[in-house]
């Protein structure tokens, strides 16, 4: 089993990479809206909403259930 420090050290760069991909996705969406003058349809809006809810859920310091469970439940909505 890993120590708390080992957990962070082992996965920090990978998590950084994954968060940057999410940030790029949101920037790409904004750029597409600016370029086309229209936003996503209802299905896309629901997916974006769930992504934003998931990001907020990750910021809760001591959640009542595992974060992965919360996110999987969120993603099951769309």
């Amino acid at each position: 089993m890993l120590s708390p420090d080992q957990v962070v050290e082992a996965s920090f760069l990978e998590a950084r990479h994954q968060l940057l991909e999410v940030a790029a996705l949101l920037d790409r969406h904004d750029a597409a809206v600016n370029r086309t003058g229209r936003d996503v349809g209802a299905g896309g809006a629901a997916k974006l909403g769930v992504l934003r809810e998931a990001l907020e859920a990750l910021c809760v310091p001591r959640p009542s259930q595992e974060r992965t469970v919360t996110l999987l439940e969120l993603f099951a909505k769309v």
Partner: peptide
Amino acid sequence: YPITKCSPKRAVDMLEK
């Protein structure tokens, strides 16, 4: 790079921008 620098998708974003 797979993780540490730019990703293929982000590179295309910058080419488009």
